[in-house]
Simulated scan of single mutants.
Amino acid sequence: MQQNSRHQLSLLARRPEVVTDILQVVKTVIAATGAWWLSDNVLNSQMPFLAPWAALLTVHATVHRSLSRGAQSTIASTLGVALSFVIGNYLGVSVWTFALALLVGLTAARLPWIRDEGIAIATTGIFVLGSGFDSQQPFLGERILELCIGVAVGIVVNLLVIPPLRDQQAARYVDSINRRMGDMLVNMADELDDDWDTAEADDWFKETESMSHELNSAWQSVRFARESQKANPRDRLRRKRIPSDEAQDSQMSSEDASYENILQRVDEGISHLRHLTRTLREGSYENGQWDTRFREQWTSVVRDAGRAIADPDAEVEPIYQRLEQLSVRMVEDKGLPERSWPLYGSLIASMQHIAVIVDDVASARSARESG
């Protein structure tokens, strides 16, 4: 029991998102502590909390976000300091001027170009006015300098301490959806080989809706992965270590097999899979009497399609060609009831669309992994 728990904890600790979160906490602690040390021991500041507070605001999950949010934090905090000094100098510090500073700061925080960090205007005003404005009045430049130091320390720490690349997390989402689609097709084939009813079809339909929800999470993860590559020294160093010819081939493969392209194709696959489940749920199968030859051949294709999309290395015969051959055989079979063709034709057409997507996703995944 303990061994299983340790194994699960070990697997959890190796997950990319968990490692990134832990590193994020560590980097934030380093940045804030370093900024406080500089402010207290180098600048001998009377308000040493401004620099670590600015560093805390600056260390975000990606380098690009740290740079953009750091710039916003600097501007917002500077405006907050300036606002506090103007109100404190001309109106004095009282309940009403404190409220006025908050009112102006919170209103200015709605400006579009600093909306993400605009609240720093109000919070900086609270710090400056609430910490004894009279003693701070001559030191406007020093307060702004402390804020800039905090932002700079936060950016430097995020650049140097293992800046995250979220491509592994994005790959996990993509592969998870591929496996779910493949497993569903295999399960569907197994159920259709035996007795089944509309309850199974309803469950399959609900499963496609669940896949769509996971696909949205995958899109968010992919966008985050793209953002994590911007201004990231790890990404540039990794490219420099690859020889120029290999780097060019890898870039071409990654463009063809980008996560965005894969997810677009997977989204189409889920749509066709949902249409397939609707056909099974609402089609002409009231008596449950399928043509035995069609059912056996069609479910064999469905099972192999599931294996192919879940595992690109699986050895299966070309799916699309098998569906064409099945259509030809069914047309040549004079004993097939005509009323069955709307159902069978729809099932074949849906699987043909899925078969094309299966091949695209499998090829793209192989290219992505080789790249």
Score class of each variant (00 low, 15 high):
V93M: 06
Q24G: 12
E282D: 14
A108N: 03
G92Y: 00
V81C: 13
R307V: 15
V93D: 09
N187K: 02
D21C: 08
A109L: 03
P243G: 01
N287T: 09
S45D: 03
R115E: 13
G182D: 01
L192K: 14
E260M: 07
L83D: 07
L106Q: 12
T28E: 03
V174R: 04
R274C: 01
L323N: 01
D195K: 06
L57M: 12
R143K: 12
E214A: 15
M47E: 10
P337R: 05
S300V: 00
L273E: 02
I87T: 06
D203G: 08
R236N: 14
A367K: 13
A35F: 00
G306N: 07
H353K: 08
G132M: 03
Q229D: 14
V316D: 09
T123K: 05
A364D: 12
S346C: 10
N4M: 04
H60N: 15
D194P: 02
T28V: 12
V18A: 07
P138Y: 05
I309Q: 06
D249F: 07
E246D: 04
E268Y: 10
E117Y: 00
G154K: 02
N261Y: 01
R234L: 11
R274K: 12
L102R: 05
G34H: 13
G306A: 07
F98D: 04
T208K: 02
V156Q: 02
W36N: 08
I75D: 08
N232L: 08
S5L: 03
L237W: 06
D360A: 01
I144F: 09
H64M: 03
A310R: 08
Q251R: 06
R365C: 02
H64Q: 11
D175Q: 11
D194C: 05
K230T: 07
S77V: 09
I121N: 00
V19K: 15
A122P: 00
R295K: 15
G88W: 00
A35I: 00
A367H: 04
L56G: 00
L57C: 06
L159H: 08
H64A: 15
R115Q: 10
A32W: 02
R303M: 02
A189G: 15
S327A: 12
A61E: 04
V26M: 11
L280A: 04
E268N: 08
A355C: 06
S210M: 05
L347F: 10
L347P: 03
E17M: 11
G283R: 01
N216D: 09
D194M: 05
Q3C: 13
L215Y: 05
W96F: 13
T124S: 11
K27Y: 10
V358S: 01
S10Q: 11
E146T: 09
S5D: 08
F98K: 05
D235L: 14
L336V: 15
L160W: 12
Y285Q: 11
M47T: 15
D203W: 01
G141S: 14
W290A: 03
N44L: 13
D291V: 08
I119H: 12
